[in-house]
Write a protein that binds this DNA or RNA. Structure first.
Length: 588
RNA sequence: GCACCCAUAGCUCAGCUGGAUAGAGCAACGGUUUUCUAAACCGUCGGUCACUGGUUCGAAUCCAGUUGGGUGUACCA
């Protein structure tokens, strides 16, 4: 469709003797209620034509129609010039572009990008918020890979710290040697159970201390359990063998549990970083910053950066006692990642409560003169809220990832059985189908919303399987596969086709938009754009399916053409759903 | 207090760099199957795009302010 812009530029030059840039031409898709496919808005051009918008539209329309045989006609309504493509142009687009093996496949851009996502704490199982994170990270990775980037998917595991010690301590005190094997509990759930127990017992102690006259603040500090946890952390940092062994054991349980969940979600990683290895990093960067005068040392030896000139605050980057804070290790880890991969871009998929942190992090790296800091991006996403408000692990008001996945698959099974759609399926095929549909519904539900918007999830209302949903799109794919398999062997040649129906035209246009959609989604790190595109395409196909006979078409070429159109639609649906990490079945 | 994000139909969401009468799905109501999968299709109903002002030929979109909601502002991570 690029030729339209060229055509408009040529027209303006020929008619009004003015050289314009591509960005001066306002091109959009023609709205459904008007005739045509492409619309040029002529209001801005009247200052060059010195004529009314209508007259300008007519003149440019006439010029384009005369000089570009892709355009068969036009109409002008107010300041809108609507151009209609010829059927032969659309057919050649279909044949030469859409049916091409390389359609929607981008050549390598020769750039490497790291996408860090998931980054869980190893003291509790994953919940719905993590699912959103994982799906976003995975999908963005796929979209970037499809756009020609070399993608490294990274997971920075938060495997140390006081919160981990809390679970360890509670297990030591109350666990009676319970293991995943002895209890039958998934490892991450078992550890999470002790994290909750710690919190319960800790709160008890706080209440007791308050009853004996301490203030809440003191009680929180003085409760024996928290002190023990702190001691345990110190022992861990000192390399105490017993603590380290316990830590290794319990983290091992958690990793085994996470692997199962990741597997079910279909996400994966190329590189794992562990905070236990990175938490001491960053001190050399502090020295570097001091030497460069970017950081300043205060009297108590703490190190700061003054960001007030950038509208931010003064920020501590190293404690007075020389130990790290969060941002210290993040600075160090950023450098480590860069040393490891020399990537051009680095994307952090992290919730929006850390917006400020990343703003500061990137700014500091930039001030330190790290050229690669320019390629850093925080893909910030909104929290997943319940109708009751925020999810809180410690209070058990979380939607557990494993539970939710299981429920979704189970709902898929029920729905499918109600519809009686699985005759001829083996048990194995059924299981796989329910998994695909359940996860498809869940993934689509989470990914169709723009990342930065917060998301409301009501556990009492099951995620839909009809309308703008994953299963709808999956169904469309299965439906196409069914038609094609019934179509039997065919050479799919349709040389005699010359005329297209309105819906066929729309479908070709929709298909032709796929590459640009992938590009836009990559540019904005937005799986939602892919989701919306897939839905529009599926909807359009269903309309086509109802309106036009395919196998029953009387003419051989028409039948072949419609089959080809169907096949291409199925391919594009499959590709775009795969970009969301969603599989599509051939039967459902 | 200050900073950042959000506000579109009863509900969940689209709406590209400003462009035509703001679009989908769900819910509600009605229709479509002797015909390729009805998880579908077609139709009806539903809106002061939070509010006010500004810029513009033109604003849901840009700017300022107001209201409401969220998050952050720790020598926590």
């Amino acid at each position: 469709m690029d030729f339209i812009i060229r055509g408009a530029l040529q027209a303006v030059k020929a008619l009004y003797n003015t050289e314009l840039n591509e960005s001066d031409i306002n091109l959009q898709e023609t709205r459904k209620e008007f005739e045509g496919e492409a619309t040029i808005v002529t209001f801005p051009l009247t200052r060059y034509s010195k004529k009314s918008p209508e007259q300008t539209g007519n003149e440019i329309g006439e010029y384009i129609k005369e000089n570009f045989d892709q355009v068969g006609g036009f109409n002008v309504i107010k300041g809108f010039l609507n151009l209609s493509f010829t059927d032969s142009y659309l057919l050649s687009t279909f044949r030469n572009e859409i049916q091409n093996e390389q359609f929607g496949i981008f050549p390598s851009v020769g750039k490497k990008v790291m996408v860090e996502y998931s980054s869980p704490n190893t003291n509790k199982p994953l919940h719905l918020g993590h699912i959103r994170n994982n799906l976003l990270g995975y999908s963005v990775s796929e979209i970037l890979a499809a756009s020609g980037y070399d993608v490294v998917k990274a997971n920075l595991v938060n495997d140390r710290g006081i919160h981990i010690c809390k679970s360890m301590l509670a297990w030591q005190k109350f666990g009676k040697g319970e293991t995943p094997e002895s209890s039958g509990l998934k490892g991450d759930h078992l550890v999470g159970k002790y994290y909750v127990i710690f919190d319960k017992e800790y709160k008890k102690q706080i209440e007791e201390l308050k009853a004996s006259g301490e203030t809440e603040e003191d009680a929180k500090k003085n409760a024996p359990l928290i002190k023990e946890a702190q001691q345990m952390l110190q022992k861990w940092e000192a390399g105490d063998e017993e603590v380290i062994n316990l830590w290794k054991t319990m983290n091992g349980w958690v990793y085994a549990g996470f692997d199962i969940t990741y597997n079910k979600l279909g996400v994966s990683f190329d590189k794992y970083y562990y905070e236990s290895n990175t938490y001491l990093l960053g001190k050399d960067i502090i020295d570097e910053g001091l030497a460069k005068g970017v950081f300043v040392k205060k009297d108590d030896n703490s190190v700061w950066i003054d960001l007030t000139a950038d509208g931010l605050d003064e920020k501590l980057v190293l404690r007075g006692d020389g130990t790290s804070v969060y941002i210290t290790q993040d600075l160090g880890t950023a450098q480590l990642k860069y040393n490891d991969f020399k990537m051009d871009q680095s994307i952090y998929v992290v919730g929006n409560e850390q917006d400020y942190h990343f703003k500061v992090l990137f700014l500091i790296l930039d001030k330190l003169g790290k050229a690669w800091a320019k390629g850093m991006y925080h893909l910030s996403y909104g929290m997943v809220d319940l109708p009751s408000g925020k999810m809180k692990s410690r209070e058990g008001t979380v939607v557990d990832a494993d539970d939710l996945i299981e429920e979704m698959v189970d709902t898929a099974r029920k729905r499918t059985e109600e519809l009686g759609k699985v005759e001829g399926f083996s048990e194995e095929e059924k299981k796989n189908l329910y998994r695909m549909i359940g996860l498809g519904a869940l993934k689509y539900f989470l990914l169709k919303v723009e990342p930065k918007k917060r998301l409301l999830f009501d556990p009492n209302e099951s995620i839909d399987f009809q309308g703008n949903t994953g299963p709808f799109i999956q169904y469309t794919h299965a439906r196409i596969c069914s038609v094609i398999s019934k179509g039997g062997e065919t050479d799919h040649s349709f040389d005699k086709i010359q005329d297209l129906s309105a819906t066929e035209r729309e479908l070709i246009l929709a298909l032709s938009r796929y590459p640009a959609t992938v590009e836009a989604a990559a540019k904005e790190y937005s799986p939602a754009q892919i989701a919306n595109y897939s839905y529009d395409l599926a909807k359009l196909y269903n309309k086509f399916y109802h309106e036009e006979p395919i196998l029953k078409a009387e003419d051989e070429d028409v039948r072949n053409f419609r089959l080809s159109l169907s096949a291409s639609t199925a391919t594009v649906i499959r590709k775009s759903m795969n970009l969301l990490g969603i599989e599509v079945p051939e039967r459902m």
